[in-house]
Structures are given as C-alpha cells and as structure tokens.
Nucleic acid binder design. Structure first.
Length: 288
DNA sequence: AAGCCGATCAACCGCAATGTT
DNA sequence: CAACATTGCGGTTGATCGGCT
C-alpha cells in the first residue's frame, strides 16, 4: 500500500500564516466546526493543505488555548508526567488544560530539559546523570590494580571499549607509580559491577550510581593512574571506533533529545577539562 | 550600525494508527 | 479483507528575535 500524499502540493501555500488566513479558518470552523480537514481549505477559501489547517487550529487558533508562560506548577506537572509517560506529548497535553502537545514539547526541549540537565538529572531517565566523571573514577580504580593487564582485559569485556579507550587517552601519560593505592586494589570487581549499566548505557534505563568508597586514607594522587597507564592500556583496549567521538560521548544517550554543545559542556566539563597535575590529590578531585 | 550567534517556537514532514469503502 | 483516506503524533526544521561583540 503506497503512502498517499498529505495534500496536493500544487498551489498549496506553506510557511507562516497571515492574519487573513487565520480569520478565514476561524470563521469557517465557527460555522462548520472542526474536522473534514481535507475539504476544509477549499471550502474556506484557503490555499493550504488540510493538515496545515488542522495544525494551525489545534496548536494556535483554538479558543481554549492558554497562551503565555508556563507556571512553575505546570512545569512540575510536565516533569512528573514525562517521567511516567516519556515523550507522549499528546498524553501529557491532555492533562494540562489549555496547553498543546506542540507547546509542551517545545517548552520541554528549550527549557525544562536544560534545567534538568543543569541539575544533574538525565531528562530521559529522570535519574541522576552518571557522566564520564564516574568513568574516571572507575578508571582510577582500574589503573591502580597491581595486575593491571588482566584486570583491564576483564574490564574491557564488561565496559564499552570505546569509552575505556577514550578515557584512558584522556587520563594518559606520565609519572611512574610509586605507591599504588590499596583502596582501589581491594575490591575492583565491586566497582566493575555497578558501572556497567551506566557506561555502556545504550538503553535509557535509570542508571546506577557509581561511587568510589570513602576512606580516610585517600591520599593517592593521579600519579599512580598515569603511571599505570604506562603499563600499556593501548595493548589491552581496542582502538576507538569511527563512530565514537567526543561529541557522542558528551551528548545524552541516543534515546534522548538532542543536546547542544553548551549543555554537554556544562555536564561534562568536570571530566574533560581537568588535567592531572602531579600534586593533585584524590580528595581535591572529589571536591570538584 | 552591522554582523554573528544562540534561543525560541510555529510550522512542516514522515510515519503509524484508525476509520471508511 | 484489502485498499485507500483521514487523523494523530513525535521529531525536525527554519524563520525570527534579542543579546552580544
């Protein structure tokens, strides 16, 4: 079955509606009521396709539309409904009298989503975001393993190899390891369990927290991490795939609406911006 | 004053679901 | 029941505007 065109393209006007067109549409619908959108434009004397008329009516001209800024309560309602329904804008709009799905969708994408991101909440899962900062924590643990190669091989089988590879490059070079931190040496598997869902989150399920256990003796510097990298993560980790770049890592998951560079920066700068000065301690790092 | 750039939002597009013949 | 028409929905685009340099 072929798809029928939404309207005859010939002689059909597109683009912004003029006040005259609006008035024609309003007058016609006042008299005949909405519906029968295919024949409506012809009968109303409009050079528009029915689809365009329907959209103009439902999203803009309908008398029951509430225009103007969204109230705080409305925003909170949208957030709550979105956490349950996802991008079911029409369903959300049905619970917000006077608001259209298009309006809610736009408001979500331009305001609410950004606000959530800034608050550290993933707008898709409505859970706290696990940014690459957590990957760095994982790697810190990983690279402090005495038996690094074996562990890295283990980790690379569990984690997204592209992420590991990129993170290792970012954490790279320098000083030889003097005192591996025993904190990270003890229970690496414990760290590896949780982050798997987060780092390799191709899905949009809520992400688990990944934390470095607290300990009063957290005096290790990133020297140790750097040193471990000299052991040769490149030997263990596969090369970056062509599909992975910084942008893709810094964006929200594929299921998320697009994230612009500014947002990505805001979220991920804590990871990508820092270097690893030799006198930079773990405690300082965790306070960032 | 002019140009650039990011934010906003109306409008469009394509697909899916539903209704009708 | 198949073919086609209509409607609804979500994602994306692009015109416009305001702030900044």
């Amino acid at each position: 079955m072929g798809r029928s065109p939404c309207c005859d393209k010939n002689g059909v006007k597109k683009g912004p509606w003029t006040p005259e067109e609006d008035q024609k549409l309003i007058d016609y619908i006042r008299f005949h009521g909405p519906g029968n959108w295919r024949i409506l434009p012809k009968n109303a004397g409009l050079q528009r396709c029915g689809k365009s008329c329907r959209l103009r009516w439902t999203n803009y001209l309908r008398p029951d539309i509430k225009r103007g800024r969204f109230s705080f309560e409305e925003e909170e309602t949208i957030i709550q409904l979105h956490s349950v329904m996802g991008n079911k804008w029409s369903a959300i709009a049905a619970r917000l009298p006077g608001r259209t799905d298009n309006e809610i969708k736009n408001h979500w994408n331009t305001h609410i989503r950004k606000r959530l991101i800034k608050s550290g909440i993933d707008p898709v899962t409505h859970s706290p975001r696990l940014d690459l900062l957590d990957v760095s924590s994982l790697l810190a643990a990983l690279f402090n393993q005495p038996n690094f190669s074996a562990v890295a091989a283990h980790a690379s089988s569990l984690l997204n190899p592209d992420v590991l590879r990129l993170a290792s490059l970012l954490l790279a070079p320098q000083q030889p390891l003097q005192n591996p931190n025993p904190i990270y040496s003890s229970n690496l598997d414990q760290y590896l369990q949780t982050p798997v869902t987060s780092v390799s989150s191709q899905d949009s399920q809520p992400q688990a927290e990944c934390t470095i256990p607290t300990n009063n003796d957290q005096t290790s510097s990133f020297e140790s991490i750097n040193a471990k990298l000299n052991v040769g993560p490149a030997d263990v980790l596969p090369p970056l795939s062509e599909s992975l770049d910084l942008d893709s890592l810094m964006s929200t998951p594929k299921s998320s609406p697009q994230q612009n560079s500014t947002e990505a920066e805001a979220n991920s700068s804590s990871f990508f911006d820092f270097g690893f000065p030799d006198n930079f301690t773990f405690d300082e790092f965790m306070l960032i």
